[in-house]
């Protein structure tokens, strides 16, 4: 039994595959009831970290405790108390929605009657009751994701691990998934998710780490990270292909910082409208302008010099 409120504790955690180091020593402490995020681009080491936390991939270095237990010693015990929603669905396509949940409950040693009750509850929760007897291959991508989430809840886990829960879903399907995850959070389930969508991290997490190339480059709440690493507002200017670089020099003094992206300039400033007005005063005519609030995307750009989604 764990006496502290630390659900996941990693110190100097490493993962290597041969000579390639996917995770290069990270410290993480996830508390009970928290929604914790790993934000970073593809290849940052998020999924490798998640697989170690899920007690399916051995730790290469450092220490890792999940619910106070060592995954190298107590893998099955840990897995019996957590839920895993993997990046790629591992549903059985050729059996029904209901049977997918039923057999999964049996893997956890739950009696058949108990599993049947939970299956009905979970189908209701992920709004798939009407699809209960459909084959999984006939479901849409969003429905499959919801089914995978339902499956990961069959053992009433204390920690729910979600690896890229909405990657590949259309906006409407993403919002349905977010809504369900938000409800779980309200029920007190500890959520740990990876994402390369900054809006997802902002919506769902209380606290997150930004990962890049196997290392944690920043940690905090979405709001505090934005406050710390960005200005409040961002003015986006589009000068047309090839002209952005030249324009950047002419507006450099109008903002705290200027980022040049292939298709636009980002001016980091406290007051976006005022900055845009000053740009126009100088006789510069961007093709398009947009003023917006700073997001985690800007934090990531600041910390790594790269964008999250290529």
């Amino acid at each position: 039994m764990t006496t502290s409120d630390s659900m996941i504790l990693a110190q100097g955690l490493r993962k290597s595959f041969g000579s390639f180091e996917a995770v290069k020593g990270i410290d993480v402490d996830v508390r009970r009831g928290e929604a914790f995020g790993f934000l970073g681009p593809n290849g940052a080491g998020k999924s490798s970290t998640m697989r170690m936390v899920a007690a399916v991939s051995p730790v290469s270095g450092g220490t890792l405790r999940i619910l106070g237990m060592d995954p190298a010693e107590d893998g099955p015990q840990i897995r019996s108390r957590i839920g895993v929603c993997p990046q790629e669905d591992t549903l059985d396509l050729e059996i029904t929605v209901r049977d997918n949940l039923f057999v999964y409950g049996r893997y956890f040693g739950l009696p058949r009657k108990e599993v049947r009750e939970r299956v009905d509850e979970l189908l209701e929760f992920v709004q798939l009751t009407e699809k209960a007897d459909s084959m999984v291959e006939d479901l849409s991508g969003g429905m499959k994701r919801r089914l995978t989430i339902a499956r990961s809840l069959i053992n009433r886990p204390e920690i729910l691990l979600l690896d890229e829960p909405t990657t590949g879903l259309d906006p409407q399907a993403r919002h349905v998934v977010w809504d369900r995850l938000f409800r779980l959070k309200q029920q007190g389930v500890t959520l740990v998710l990876t994402t390369h969508y900054m809006d997802e991290a902002e919506q769902l997490t209380d606290r997150l780490v930004v990962m890049d190339k196997g290392l944690i480059v920043a940690e905090g709440s979405p709001m505090s990270l934005i406050a710390e690493h960005s200005t409040r507002e961002v003015a986006e200017l589009r000068f047309g292909v090839g002209d952005n670089e030249a324009a950047a020099d002419k507006v450099a003094d109008l903002a705290d910082r200027v980022e040049v992206l292939p298709d636009r300039l980002l001016l980091y400033t406290a007051d976006g409208e005022e900055t845009v007005a000053k740009v126009h005063e100088r006789g510069l005519e961007p093709v398009a302008t947009l003023v917006r609030r700073a997001t985690l995307e800007d934090v990531f750009l600041r910390l790594t010099g790269r964008t999250l989604v290529d």
Partner: peptide
């Protein structure tokens, strides 16, 4: 193809 084993080994089963 179906990755069924990955689902199974995410449970307490070895």
């Amino acid at each position: 193809w179906h990755k069924t084993y990955f689902g199974m080994t995410a449970s307490p089963l070895t």
